[in-house]
Design a protein around this nucleic acid. Structure first.
Lengths: 181, 181
DNA sequence: AAAGATTGACTATTCAATCTTG
DNA sequence: CAAGATTGAATAGTCAATCTTT
């Protein structure tokens, strides 16, 4: 008979997480490789993207930190790099002089313009098409997959449902930071 | 009318990828926080896990690199850390003296034994249960989500279907590395 | 010469501390 | 003093070069 560890090591939940992880990692790798054509990392691209679709092409550093998976200092560093490359500018906030805006430059938008189509094509090829092309009803498959993701996301990232009632409960997760040794 | 960028920035494919990314990131954060109780990072845990379920608790460094998302030197570093903590040993390979085995120690297995249940509980709570608890047929939802992931994975990571015919086509992806400046 | 593993140099990110403004 | 942003020190990973064995 097998030991206690061996039993758990074949658990179907572990398999499910493994599939999730492998899929995500591989997909991210394709996207990363594609973005490399423009010499931008996924984080840099995401920052640019979020700025690009925000009013006035701008967002406060703190807002960027909340929307990306970066810490506040992480955002400072990414924006530093983007500023050096002329893709982003820093701008002071008139109403609160503690805040700083990151603003996408024309070059920044141009880069988005150039990079987004290829990015979408990768998503199309490796995510949308594979999900659509299944036996009985492909469209339903894509829809249910998307719905499942959305449900999980809403549960895992309650803040993501912004615009909704900011009523009860803590606005932020208790910071799942790893304890350092 | 809107500019060319603005149009693409709302593309549904971008939304789908965003959902995927957010979900994965949040889920990974929960798992990371849980593993932190044992002072192991996700990569360290994965290495330990793979060793734990391999014959003789061991794997060559190269095999580990192929199975984890790490490079060869990345594996060297992770194993270094695990060796320092007494969770893994290095062992020479008798038949090929170029190779080195990483072997899980008793302490390494004990850590797995202690950490896996909590890990599974997190997956259960944030992935399995949410997928099961939907209106018409929860079990079908979980099954179809898993099936979709498996299909995507098989497409994205052809090598993962190991044991299958190693017949035609390149065995490995063309290394989606980011070009450094 | 190619494969396996490691090392050195470098990059990206984090945490903790700091500085400024509210 | 809390909030926003930045900086310094430290960590984990990559790539390119190296060493040993095949």
């Amino acid at each position: 008979m097998l030991g206690p560890v061996s039993d758990l090591l074949d658990d179907e939940r572990l398999t499910l997480m493994g599939l999730f992880a492998e899929t995500w990692t591989a997909l991210a790798a394709r996207l990363t490789a594609d973005l490399a054509r423009f010499d931008v990392s996924p984080v840099e691209f995401e920052v640019l993207l979020r700025l690009g679709r925000s009013p006035d092409r701008r967002l406060r550093m703190t807002e960027l930190a909340a929307q990306t998976s970066l810490t506040s200092s992480g955002v400072t560093r990414v924006v530093d790099r983007l500023v050096v490359r002329g893709l982003v500018d820093r701008a002071a906030c008139a109403t609160d002089r503690r805040s700083t805006y990151a603003v996408a430059t024309d070059d920044g938008l141009a880069l988005l313009d150039a990079a987004v189509p290829g990015h979408l094509a990768v998503v199309e090829e490796w995510l949308v098409v594979p999900l659509l092309s299944t036996a009985p009803d492909g469209a339903a498959d894509l829809a249910s997959f998307t719905a499942a993701l959305r449900r999980l996301r809403d549960l895992l990232v309650p803040c993501a449902t912004a615009g909704a009632v900011p009523a009860a409960g803590p606005a932020h997760l208790p910071a799942p930071s790893v304890s350092r040794r």
